Amino acid sequence: MTCPICRYETEDGKYCKKCGARLITQDTSVIADLPEQGATPQIHRVRQNVSSKVEKPRVIRDESALPMYTPPDIPVLTASRQYSEESVKANPYWTSLKLYGQLYGDYFLKGLRHPFRAASAIEKSQFLYAIVSMMLYVLLLPLAMYAATQHEWGGVSQGTFADHFLKPVMSISIFFILLNLFIFTAIKLSFNPAVKLKEVMTRFGSMLSIFIVLYMVSFLCLVMNGDISKMIILLTFLCTVMTVPLFVMTSYKRRVTSGLDPLYAILLVYAASMLVLSLMGSSVIESIIAPL
């Protein structure tokens, strides 16, 4: 047996006779296997790491080769959104009309709740809404009288629809234009020399809301009594001529002291209005008062 320390050849025994080192007899096979057993986990780890490094790109390659996942569409929301977008794109005029209708409704309600306050705080940018209110007034007055006469007589005996509706519309439109010019001149002479006609007409239109509603009420009164309807129409027209010019003028603060006195300015507006009505009597006054 060879000593593992000094390489001395000795007989069988537990210790070397030359150096005294212990001889390995029974555990030789076990110890010989130790390096292999110790290396096995290392080799396994190395193989595992190498295999993981090699397989990882393959997995990524496989994932990239898979088809992309696309979530399903939501049909209700998508369809409604597309419909709304297409409707907005296809109907820009309807969208604008709806917006202006909402703005005019706000303008009309403010004039109905607080006419004098709304006229005092009105802006020139609302001139278009004032024109709409004037047009409604001009159309509703002859239409209300035409409906009242139709209800009483069961049909207009003389004249046509043009005589009882279209001609009064033209006459009242001219009268309103002249009335605004009279108010503008009176304000310029007695209240504010820097006033603009557009601003005066805007305030004038904002005060017509209550009278437009009264004409609509006259249509409802036809169900109960035609005479009540005609009295409402006549009083509404007279109140418009007497009150609206007064409140439009007094909605301005007086900035001149040497100008015309406000009382005389208001009286001049009334006098000019009555003069115009007398000259246009055949088309305005008769169409309103004659059926009463």
Rank of each mutant, 00 (worst) to 15 (best):
F211A: 05
A265Y: 07
S258C: 13
G38W: 13
I232K: 01
I183M: 11
V50C: 09
T78R: 09
Q48D: 14
L214S: 15
K198P: 12
I60M: 11
H164C: 08
K17W: 14
F237G: 05
K124T: 14
S133H: 02
F176S: 02
M274Y: 04
K196Y: 11
P41M: 05
Q126K: 05
K17Y: 11
R113Y: 06
R47H: 07
A130T: 04
M135L: 15
S133I: 08
A144C: 08
F176L: 08
M274Q: 02
Y146V: 04
P41T: 02
K14A: 12
M242H: 09
P71V: 09
E152K: 06
A144P: 01
L238G: 07
T257P: 00
Y129L: 11
A265G: 12
T149W: 03
A194S: 06
K198W: 11
K230W: 09
L99G: 01
L23D: 03
Q37E: 13
V88C: 07
F219M: 04
K89G: 14
M68R: 09
K110N: 09
R45V: 13
V195S: 03
G259H: 06
L99A: 07
T257H: 05
G226M: 03
I288A: 00
L112C: 05
S125M: 10
E86R: 01
A32S: 03
I177W: 13
S157G: 06
R203Y: 08
F127N: 05
R22Q: 14
V248T: 05
M170A: 08
I233G: 01
L77K: 05
A147W: 14
N91V: 09
E63C: 05
L23M: 10
T243Q: 04
K188N: 15
F191M: 15
K98R: 15
A79G: 13
S251A: 13
Y270E: 04
Y8R: 00
T240P: 00
I5R: 05
A272M: 08
L275I: 15
A21L: 07
T70K: 14
T240K: 01
F127G: 01
K89T: 13
S229M: 10
A121C: 04
F161S: 04
L23N: 03
I43K: 10
E85L: 12
K14L: 13
Y107T: 00
F237Q: 12
V138A: 09
L136N: 00
F108V: 12
D62C: 03
C3L: 03
I232E: 01
L263R: 08
M207D: 02
